[in-house]
């Protein structure tokens, strides 16, 4: 069944693992997103290694390092796993790398990025590739990642 390729152990484990589902007290950015098809809300928090203050994430230079990343909110297994993968992956990366990883992830779900070398950089988040074949769940998988574009 195709369902087994989506609800894999790695995804259900990530959805239940709440390590990075927490509030970062000193977070510079809290980026929230709503899935219009179900109303689920997710917020991604970023703590950056910079003294500057920026009005939006878009203004932050590529070389600034993300020192901590977390997410808040409830949702389905797919959106929770996706947010957990994101938080895990972005911690310690630069903002520029985060932007690239976001584009790769969204490309993977759209089916436009298939290059294995690029996909490998997504680490565990690659487990969500199967969602590309489930149009009804694409918004769940991309919810957390889209907040990075706000």
């Amino acid at each position: 069944m195709s369902i087994n390729s989506v609800y894999t152990q790695i995804i259900t484990d990530a959805a239940r693992d709440k390590t990075n589902r927490r509030e970062i007290p000193g977070a510079q950015f809290t980026l929230s997103g709503v899935n219009p098809s179900c109303g689920d809300e997710i917020a991604v928090q970023l703590e950056l290694d910079t003294q500057e203050s920026y009005a939006s994430l878009a203004e932050v230079p590529d070389d600034v390092v993300i020192t901590d990343c977390s997410y808040l909110g409830q949702g389905c297994a797919i959106s929770q796993a996706s947010a957990a993968f994101l938080a895990e992956l972005l911690t310690g990366k630069t903002v520029g790398q985060a932007r690239e990883l976001r584009d790769t992830f969204l490309g993977m779900i759209k089916g436009s990025v298939t290059d294995e070398e690029a996909l490998d950089k997504l680490e565990d988040a690659q487990a969500l590739a199967g969602v590309a074949k489930m149009p009804a769940r694409v918004k769940c998988a991309t919810l957390a990642w889209h907040t990075l574009s706000e």
Binding site: I3, Y7, C38, C76, A77, I78, C140
Partner: peptide, 18 residues
């Protein structure tokens, strides 16, 4: 989550709203 349930139910031909 109802969305996860509905996705799996769909594999059995069951159409419910979530």
């Amino acid at each position: 989550h109802p969305h996860d349930a509905a996705t799996v139910l769909s594999e059995y031909g069951v159409c419910v709203r979530a």
